[in-house]
């Protein structure tokens, strides 16, 4: 039960790919914030993430004009982020 936090886009960082190596599809979740949310526009990335529970930071998505593109992904505000971090045993910030 781990919440994996991804803050940087895979274009600049190994964070997402490293995380995907170890994240468990059944029990973990992945929360994308900051520029990491941009990669969800890419079909290839979405396909990789298809079997994982994915959340995105609502503020970061809205700030970038991506809300209408990412309707299928569950968005969380900061108080929901706080609650999620407590629901999982630990948070790994990649």
């Amino acid at each position: 039960m781990i919440l994996h936090l991804i803050k940087d886009t895979p274009a600049n960082s190994s964070a997402l790919n490293t995380c995907l190596r170890y994240a468990r599809k059944q029990t973990d979740c992945i929360l994308l914030s900051g520029n990491a949310v941009n990669c969800l526009l890419q079909a290839e990335v979405l396909a990789h993430l298809a079997d994982y529970k994915i959340y995105v930071s609502q503020e970061d998505v809205a700030a970038r004009g991506l809300t209408r593109f990412l309707k299928q992904i569950e968005q969380v505000n900061y108080s929901e982020f706080v609650a999620l971090s407590l629901k999982y045993d630990k948070v790994i910030s990649w």
């Binding site: 781990i2 170890y22 630990k90 790994i92 910030s93 990649w94």
Partner: peptide, 14 residues
Amino acid sequence: EIAAHFDHVDEVMV
């Protein structure tokens, strides 16, 4: 094995 190790510890810092 690494994922199992992450489960086993209290905190993971990257």
